[in-house]
Each structure stands twice: as structure tokens, then as C-alpha cells.
Design a protein around this nucleic acid. Structure first.
Lengths: 231, 231
DNA sequence: CCCGGATGTGACAGAACGGTGACGGACCCT
DNA sequence: AGGGTCCGTCACCGTTCTGTCACATCCGGG
């Protein structure tokens, strides 16, 4: 596997340099941006595997940047770690709610940062590299974000897509609603667990025309399972 | 779902009280310990779903407690959140490396603490690879939550599943009804002991079609045993 | 062989659980 | 602003599960 790419978005040069230095030494490929505009530019040609985003930026708050990234299909699954100087929980929780995968409070040590980065990356890439997943005639092409059954297109909302993607990369295994929230919605969301049911329902409905809703199975008292075998 | 149990290990009473109060108000069932020794005692009878462990404790550092918990099979998957005084990040990373699932820096707000707790609980038990139990042609795959005999699926209710799982991990041993209630139903439930009989019956009935009900044996006057040998 | 306590078993009512449609709000595109 | 999409929550409902009871049955001791 090639070196992981990390994009740092931070306006204060000393900090940026320090972090970049530490990360390069740890074997990452690092690019830098000092505001949101140039960050977006960098995103186009070098799709980073992870982003470090400062809270305070000259043109736009890092929180907003993160939010907009998480809204875009193209960038939504780039993990983001927020860097914040403010210690108030208000900001912390806000950062998490904004879609950041984690946050680190300044001042931080390189060691802590590295630990966070590794943790977030691990969480973000559960299975290896296949771009096209296939299962019982159901095809999911991750590069084009398309799902098809036979030769018909399956229309899915963003959440249903992520849910199906997660299931297809983790078949034959039961996941509790909480685990699904953690791994499909993202570790830092808090929504009702029953919300999962609703999205399961939506996914099933989308698969119904192809009689593939049977793949999404309920395990009463435990959660859901994606499997070809009936059960 | 029954209320989640949280064990607080913290020597400073004011803080402990405050946290306990907040958590109870949030609907958790809270027990408290002021040092590692009594924490261990509490672990025995009330298996908590999550622990909050202070960094500095009178008898032993919270880090060590966490480490030792994570080394023990019996307790390794109880999530731990460390509480640390506004200290060096060195400690933070140490806390994570020691096996803690997260940490919160004092002073912290109830909101932050709750957010962390929920996140950690959701993440709990992402356990790794295969864990398949096999016994006399009876297979129980815990990760997919399936039970099969030969190539046929065995249909079990949640409680029967847990019961069988417990038996298969503790074969050749007699358990009294009380012990089974403790370990299968969970320490803090109150039900009649005869309830066990009924579920034993249900489990046996499910295994009957495969002539495997013989594995669930009655030991008159003592309880039940899961064993291949007759008698 | 009979008795008494222990266990097996079917039935049942209430609780728990999951399925589902609807709704209002946030956001996006025009 | 208007229409559309998606999302999270809720309320309601049928189904499944659970704990308990009552009665049948079994077993060992006297």
C-alpha cells in the first residue's frame, strides 16, 4: 500500500510546519493548506486519506468546511480530525456533531496526534481495496457510487448506500443498532437507535423489487445481518 | 432494554457524587467505588456495562487497573473511560494505550461526558474474527448469531441462544438455577428460579429434532449440565 | 409400594421488540 | 420562494418472547 496522504488545513505556519514535520517523519505524505479555499483546491487533485482541520481559519470556520465536506458524496468519507484551541465542551461537541471523526485540543503532543490519526484511519477503512462488491447478483460499485441488481439500477439514498456498503463488506455477521450507528453513521453522531430500523426498512424497500430484501435479516434482540443464507 | 450499568471509580467524593447524580438523571444505573480494590469487588457481582476510572487513585493508578482489566478475559470487553486531571498529553496517550477506550479531561461538562459514554458504548464489542463453538455436531457461530446442527438451522429465541452459548462455553459442569440466572440472565435480574426450567425446556425442544436435547442434562437436586456423556 | 419434593410441560397474559407509514425540518437545486 | 430529497423521530400495530402458574410426571427414600 502506498503512503497515506494527509492534508493539513491550518493558518498558523509554525504549528503547520511542526505537525507536517512530525507526520512526514512518521511516514505519511503530507500536503498543507492555510485556508479553506486552498484546501478545497488540494482536494481535487490529491484526494487525501485524512484531513487535519484547524478550528479557526481566516476565510471560514473549520467546522463549516468539515460540514460541507461531509455533505458531499465525493468527500464525505475522508476522515477529519479537528484541531481546536478552545477547551470549552461546547466547541468539542459542536465539532463532533459537525461530522468530524475526532478532535484534538491544542496544545497537543505529536504522540497524541499520531494515536488519534491511527485510530481514526483504522476505523475508516474496515476492509481492503475492492472497488466493486458483488453479492447474489447485487453489485455495488464504490467508485461510481452505483448499485445495480441484474442490469437494473437500484436507487438508494446516501445513508442506505453507506449501510449497504457496510453490510456488503461485512457479510454473515450480526451488528447491533449501536454498532451500525457507530460504523455507518460515524462514531460521533447521536441519534436514536430506532433510526437504524427506519433505514433498514428503506434499504429493504429499495431491494424488494429484486427480491433481494431477504439479504437484510433481522436478528431479534441483537440487530441485523447481511447474508445469503436464510435464517 | 434494561438500564445500562456504570461503575465509577473515583476517590474524590464531591466529584463522584456529581457525576453519579448526572448519570442517574440520564437514566443509567450507577455504582461507585473509591479505590481499585472495591472496584474489583463490585465487578464480581455487578458486571457494569462501562467504567469511569479516575487516573489518580489512592491504592493503585487507574491506568494499572485498566490494564489489568483488559488483560482478563472476563473483563476485557468492559469499556473504560479514564478521567484525567488537566494533565500532560503523555498521560492521555498512556491512557489509551493502557487499553482505555476513551478519556475525558477534568474539568469536564456533563454533556461531554454523556456524549463520550454513548459513543464508547456503541463501539463496544467490535470483536474480531471467527468464534465458532462446536459440540457434537452442534455449531454456534456467535459472530453471525447462528446455530446449526448438521446443515440445518436451529431456531432459538434470544434467551435460549444465550443459554446455549453459556453452556457451550462451560461444558461438563453443573450449574444451579441461581448460577444460571446470574450468568445468563444477568446479575441484577429478579425472576423465579423455576423460570430456568422453562427455558431449559424450550432449548431442549429446539434441539429435539436433531436428537441433541440429550446434551442438556438434569442433575436432580443441583441444576443442569451440558455434556456429551450420558448420565 | 407409597409419599413428597423436584422437575417437565402446556397455557397464558403482559412486556418487549421490530415493522411501518407519516410528519416536519434541514438542506439543495433552480 | 418553491419543489424535491433525505433524514430523524414518532406513534401505532402485529408478532414474538418471557416469566409465571397449574398440573402432570418423575425419582428416591422409607
Amino acid at each position: 500500500m502506498t503512503a497515506k496522504r494527509i492534508l493539513i488545513v491550518e493558518d498558523e505556519k509554525p504549528i503547520r510546519d511542526l505537525v507536517a514535520f512530525g507526520l512526514r517523519r512518521a511516514g505519511y505524505e503530507v500536503s498543507e493548506a492555510e485556508d479553506c479555499r486552498s484546501a478545497r483546491a488540494s482536494l481535487v487533485d490529491q484526494r487525501p486519506d485524512l484531513m487535519l482541520v484547524d478550528w479557526m481559519l481566516p476565510d471560514m470556520s473549520g467546522l463549516e468546511l468539515t460540514r460541507s465536506l461531509k455533505r458531499d458524496k465525493e468527500t464525505e468519507d475522508i476522515p477529519v480530525i479537528m484541531l481546536t484551541a478552545r477547551a470549552e465542551e461546547q466547541d468539542k461537541v459542536g465539532g463532533l456533531e459537525g461530522g468530524a471523526d475526532d478532535y484534538v485540543t491544542k496544545p497537543f503532543s505529536p504522540r497524541e496526534l499520531l494515536a488519534r490519526i491511527q485510530a481514526v484511519m483504522r476505523r475508516a477503512s474496515p476492509a481492503g481495496g475492492e472497488d466493486v462488491l458483488e453479492f447474489e447478483g447485487l453489485r455495488l460499485d464504490d467508485s461510481s457510487h452505483r448499485v445495480s441488481a441484474g442490469d437494473a439500477e437500484v436507487a438508494l439514498g446516501p445513508t442506505e448506500y453507506r449501510l449497504l456498503h457496510f453490510f456488503m463488506t461485512h457479510p454473515e455477521r450480526v451488528f447491533g443498532r449501536g454498532q451500525l450507528l457507530d460504523r455507518v453513521w460515524g462514531g460521533s453522531t447521536y441519534v436514536e437507535e430506532r433510526t437504524v430500523d427506519v433505514h433498514i426498512r428503506r434499504l429493504r424497500r429499495a431491494l424488494e423489487p429484486f427480491a433481494l430484501d431477504r439479504l437484510v435479516q433481522t436478528v431479534r434482540g441483537s440487530g441485523y445481518r447481511f447474508s445469503a443464507r436464510e435464517g
